[in-house]
Amino acid sequence: METTIEKHTISVLVDNEPGVLARVIGLFSGRGYNIESLTVAEVDAEQKVSRITIVTSGTRMIIEQIKNQLDRLVPVHRVRDLTDEGPHIERELALIKVAGTGDRRIESLRIADIFKARVVDATLSSFVFEMTGSAAELDDFIGLMRQLGLVDVSRTGVAAISKGAASL
């Protein structure tokens, strides 16, 4: 039995109807699968279609199961494994609040500049930074801010899309 754990990013198109997110989440909790991140929003208001992006991990067999189980849900239109299907972009947005004065405050601003994080709120004793990037880049930035007065983080989870002209 293979035991290598793989991390996969899966895109799911669903009917935007009541309970559809509960179905997806219930599937993961009921069958003991991991969710590392999950994002959802309507992407076609006319057709009432939402796109869910799930980052999950498991053995190859589990990943295949997850995709098949998702595909089996009645309101699910399409399931695509972006990790398997080739090059794709993953992005996450975070809002990061840092409080402090003096050198630490200046240092946080300098580092934010290096990471291309934007200041979206400032007081005399705090900043809120907005940063977009890969999950790993956000981790790095947040890790540095932790030493400079981090007080709050809000992250969106991963949104992902394949490269090139093809649609999902």
Binding site: P18, G19, A22, R23, G26, G30, L73, P75
Partner: peptide, 14 residues
């Protein structure tokens, strides 16, 4: 009911 029966039905509706 739809919440309770979601994991024990193939599909459900309200």
């Amino acid at each position: 009911t739809t919440g309770i029966t979601r994991p024990c039905t193939k599909h459900n509706y309200l």
